[in-house]
Simulated scan of single mutants.
Amino acid sequence: MTTSSRRIHVVSFTGNSGLTDYAVSLCRELDKLADVTLVTAASYDPARYQVNFPYASLFRRTRQYPVDILRYIAYTLKTRPELVLWQSWLKYPLLEGWIVMLLRLFGIRMALTIHDLLPHEPKPWSRMVCAWFYRRFDKLIVHSERSVEGLRAMGVHTEPLLVPHGIYDIFRLAPLTREQARAELPGIGPDDFVVLFFGHIDVRKGILEFLHTSELMRDQPHIKFVVAGGRGSTLPAAAAAELDRYKDAPNVILHDHMIPFERVQYYFTAAHAVALPYLEGTTSGVIKLAMAFDRPFIATDIGDFAETLRDWSGLLTAGKQPAAEFADAIARMRADYARYAAELADKSAKYQWPTIARAHAQYLSLA
């Protein structure tokens, strides 16, 4: 850890989610530039990430939020960091905006990383509430030009830091060949072209479109569609029933359960390409996993996906006929895969965490 007196808190309400992965990756590098503490949930396990910077476990389950948010305020006022960097709103932006103003009254600078401009499945009032929330902060950090434009359209005039979402290299635990990875995933043959849908299974992420694509390509030999991720409690019953229908499909491998941290590397190493047939969203940590494992991706043209492809390899689809467009993109990538793989060389420099941490330090006046 640095001996700098610049004390900052990086806050993630969850302790075992994609936001946590992001916060840990950032803290790992910021800790070399400032005195960093990760403020997170009781479910956080530093051994999982193999990191040793300080942390405080203040949050528990959502039902305990009313008590925990008071604990958080008391802890922050007691420790008095120079700056606090929240990773998104914690739970309720309308309430938490007032907490931000309170902490600023005590001389604590407040910054926010905006991972999604609006909540998933936004309400009619979400845009107004989020715009008000964003204006409470001294500094804002976004990951795409579309997010910058979105902030301006919402009437938020704070000049943000535009910095890409870093790659998730924390999941690369050991050298692993594709053959070794596939040996851990029964059902994948040595000649199969593997397309991976990874992460929380949700309708908005296009899981049904991905499975419909597998049906369109069922007669094409040696193409396997792998689904790896837990079903959310909000998955509609009709979508769950549709998911179950593909459990016995010959070209689908369905692992619809939470993937342990140490198993993530097997899925990405085994895959040729990563699929993101998203229907809605701003950014995705799954892309940064694909980049960490040097895999091209196929995605719907939403959020920052097109911007990321300027620096990476893959294909975008318009999303008007999702299954047919994805089937065509998979066929094109498979036919010319050597070229897509070759394009990956030396393209990830701007997505490395040391570069991202230095940009944070300069923007937040930590360096």
Rank of each mutant, 00 (worst) to 15 (best):
V100F: 14
T283Y: 07
R80L: 02
V84G: 10
L309T: 05
E149Q: 14
V274E: 02
R152D: 11
D116P: 01
V11W: 05
F171D: 04
L83Q: 09
L103G: 03
P160I: 02
D35Y: 10
I253S: 02
R172I: 10
K247G: 15
V195P: 03
I356Y: 01
L289D: 03
F13E: 11
T355A: 04
H272C: 01
L118R: 09
A292Y: 00
H157V: 14
M128A: 15
V194H: 07
D202E: 13
T40E: 06
R310F: 02
A23Q: 00
H157Y: 12
D191G: 05
V156F: 09
A349I: 08
P221T: 09
S147A: 15
Y92M: 13
R28V: 01
V286M: 00
A41I: 03
K288F: 07
A342S: 15
Y134I: 06
E159C: 02
I259L: 10
A23V: 01
S57V: 09
A249L: 04
H360Y: 06
P277H: 00
R135M: 01
D328R: 15
S348Y: 09
E343N: 08
A270N: 10
S313E: 04
Q352L: 04
L196H: 02
Y134F: 15
F171S: 08
L94E: 14
H143T: 02
D248M: 13
D31P: 03
K350S: 06
I356G: 04
S214T: 04
R204S: 13
P186W: 13
A238P: 03
A34I: 06
T76C: 12
K347A: 03
R358V: 07
G229A: 10
L103H: 03
A228K: 08
N251Y: 03
K288V: 04
W89M: 11
P277T: 08
A241F: 09
Q321H: 12
V11N: 10
L83H: 12
K78W: 15
R109L: 08
L366A: 04
A335D: 15
E325V: 02
A306V: 05
V10P: 08
L279S: 11
P277N: 10
M1Q: 12
L279W: 08
I108A: 06
V39F: 09
L70H: 10
L83V: 08
A111R: 05
R63K: 13
Y278L: 10
A34T: 11
V39S: 13
F210M: 00
P236K: 05
